[in-house]
Design a protein around this nucleic acid. Structure first.
Length: 304
RNA sequence: GGUGGGGUUCCCGAGUGGCCAAAGGGAACAGACUGUAAAUCUGUCGUCUGACGACUUCGGUGGUUCAAAUCCACCCCCCACCA
């Protein structure tokens, strides 16, 4: 795991290539990125391309249409299934991605909250539109003071989520949180791949230019024909959203590129903050050499 | 050369006598994070100070005023149009 664009996939691929060849355990790659699941944006979300995916089995990439929603809970279930299957087939699964919450849900569990009826969610969204998040936060304080105290009144997304869960399940969000399993069922080695932001930023810019050169615009306009709703889940990815604005004639290509880079950088920073707060990761630089050499304890997973 | 518009804090940009260290946005920095997470949200953001507060800013210089980013004069730059 690590911030976007720092070379996680490449390192994983390196493992997949080198080890089985020298008689080690076969390796497979499992996506842990909330955007790379989307079918319509393989390039813009930097999914491994066909030749890369040929190196070893890849799972959970590019299977979801733009209008479909993904979620941490969903992901945890799907990834757990893939891991079980991979183990059964003798593969060593390598999780690659930068979506901290997804990885956390998979490894540490997530509250077993049943799905909430769409109509209920919609109603809270409408109330948030009409009354504003702080008003709903006050309401939440009356029913779930514990959780309300943890979030900011302006945090509409969390306020409405807590309220819809409360209404949909009859239990407070904080009660559900207490039901989280919490222990990790896997023997995991966590590797953080990263660079300081100052070093990462120019790489992110270069990566955007490369995406544009390889047809990001075409990808976005095809995606727009398949799903023209800018609010659809698939369109919320960085790059996707900005290209949509460009295609809609709202901004110039230069502005698009600039926004795209700014947003990507800000995102990388958020990821860094998240991973900083997580328990110990083995941090490596992507350019420091093959992973096995850098991470003590990795080798034992790779041999048979 | 003439006419009109303009020069504001890192950037964009509001502000036309006191309530202005100066709205708002962006960037930056720090942070939060349990089914939207490439999302959502928070704090800081002229200098010094732990804080009260003090000090220096709105192209330049000089003036008017108890008080100027805001008014006046001259000057310097930019843009548009006319020549």
């Amino acid at each position: 795991m690590g911030p976007t664009g720092c070379g996680k996939s490449g390192l994983a691929l390196g493992l997949a290539q080198d080890f089985p060849a020298s008689g080690g355990r076969p390796v497979c790659v499992i996506n842990a990125d909330s955007r790379q699941v989307y079918r319509d944006f393989p390039l813009i979300t930097a999914q491994p391309d066909a030749s890369e995916q040929n190196v070893c089995p890849h799972h959970l990439y590019g299977f979801l249409p733009s209008e479909s929603k993904m979620s941490a809970g969903n992901y945890a279930v799907m990834a757990a299934e893939v891991i079980a299957r991979s183990h059964a087939q003798g593969f060593l699964p390598i999780l690659v991605g930068g979506t901290g919450l997804y990885i956390k849900s998979l490894l540490e569990g997530i509250a077993p909250i049943p799905p909430v009826e769409a109509a209920i969610s919609r109603r809270w969204q409408e109330r948030a539109d009409a009354e504003g998040a702080p008003a709903l936060h006050r309401l939440l304080s009356e029913h779930d003071p514990l959780y309300a105290a943890k979030i900011h009144p302006n945090d509409r997304q969390r306020v409405t989520r807590a309220l819809e869960v409360l209404e949909g399940t009859g239990k407070a969000f904080s009660w559900w949180h207490a039901q989280t399993a919490g222990s990790c069922p896997y023997d995991v080695l966590k590797i953080g791949v990263g660079l300081p932001l100052e070093e990462l930023t120019p790489l992110l810019g270069a990566r955007i230019d490369k995406m544009l050169a390889r047809g990001a615009l075409e990808e976005a306009s095809v995606a727009r024909e398949l799903c023209g709703d800018a609010k659809a889940p698939g369109w919320s990815g960085i790059g996707c959203a900005e290209l949509y604005q460009y295609l809609a004639g709202e901004i110039s290509l230069d502005e698009c590129r600039e926004l795209w880079l700014n947003h990507t950088r800000a995102y990388a920073k958020r990821q860094l903050t998240w991973f900083k707060g997580q328990e110990t990761l083995e941090w490596v630089r992507p350019d420091a050499g093959p992973l096995v050499k850098l991470v003590p304890g990795l080798e034992k997973y790779l041999v048979n």
